[in-house]
């Protein structure tokens, strides 16, 4: 589904990604772990099409389509979803209105009929229940004045409503208390499906107790230095990232 090949990216003349290879198949959950500054968030932003980053080498493909050729909204239409590490506050735009606009923009781009207000409301309520989001959040402006936990839940709600084929979760666990973490994980697990893949980017192993990945990758200094099964996350928890310096040297 997703194929990242020898990806190099820089921002303001500083190279952050130095040759990332990642292949994610349908139905799979991949965890990308790494310390601060390893390039995790850059990878997420580059996938979603943030223009601040310049891709200097390598390729990004979703279902064989070159993502680099696509605007951020076109990537969304193709089924890519990024749960932001720092969801943006948008005062003046109602959360529910925004979600409806997003759903219908995607439907329109895919040649599907747009949802009317009633059908959308039904979908929204159903998904809000699924990911345990209070309906009061839907009536407020997008992320405006939301707590950290509310913002992350709102990201998961958007994912549930938009039904992406590939969801990239960028440190969705950071700053969450254990209850919020469980809720977010439950939301993700509820959406796991044969035709849907997840890339869970995280600093800590904690989230992976609740979202059990099929594959774990360690990102260090802009490269994936090791890949393995879910046991690799536990190894990281015990040894820390320091233990992978040798691996990086070999890589």
């Amino acid at each position: 589904m997703l194929r990242v090949t020898d990806l190099h990216a820089k921002v303001e003349e500083q190279e952050i990604l130095k040759g990332v290879d990642l292949e994610v198949g349908a139905g799979e959950v991949h965890a990308v772990m790494g310390p601060n500054g390893s390039g995790k968030s850059t990878l997420a932003q580059v996938l979603a099409g943030k223009e601040d980053y310049e891709i200097t080498a390598g390729s990004l493909e979703l279902d064989g389509e070159d993502l680099q050729e696509m605007a951020p909204e076109e990537r969304a239409h193709a089924g890519l979803f990024l749960a932001f590490q720092y969801p943006v506050e948008i005062p003046g735009v109602g959360n529910s209105y925004f979600l409806k606009a997003a759903v219908n923009a995607n439907r329109k781009a895919r040649g599907e009929p747009e949802l009317d207000a009633m059908d959308f409301l039904k979908l929204l309520r159903e998904r809000a229940t699924l990911v345990d989001v209070d309906e009061a959040l839907l009536r407020r402006p997008v992320n405006d004045g939301f707590s950290g936990g509310e913002k992350k839940r709102n990201e998961i709600l958007q994912m549930a409503v938009l039904e992406p084929r590939l969801a990239v979760l960028d440190e969705t666990d950071s700053g969450l208390d254990i209850d919020a973490l469980k809720t977010v994980a439950a939301g993700v697990n509820a959406l796991r499906a044969e035709n849907r893949a997840f890339v869970v980017i995280t600093h800590y192993q904690r989230l992976l107790n609740y979202i059990v990945p099929d594959h774990v990758h360690v990102l260090l200094d802009g490269r994936i230095v090791r890949s393995g099964g879910s046991e690799l996350a536990h190894e990281l928890e015990e040894k820390g990232y320091g233990g992978f310096d040798g691996a990086r040297a070999e890589a």
Binding site: A48, G49, K50, E51, A71, P72, E73, R75, A76, H77, F81, L82, F84, P87, V88, E89, I90, F98, A101, A102, A105, N106, A109, Q158, L162
Partner: peptide
């Protein structure tokens, strides 16, 4: 940032 956020959700420029 807000513009990118909306576009990343599929809403055109």
């Amino acid at each position: 940032e807000a513009l990118f956020y909306l576009r990343a959700r599929g809403i055109g420029f």
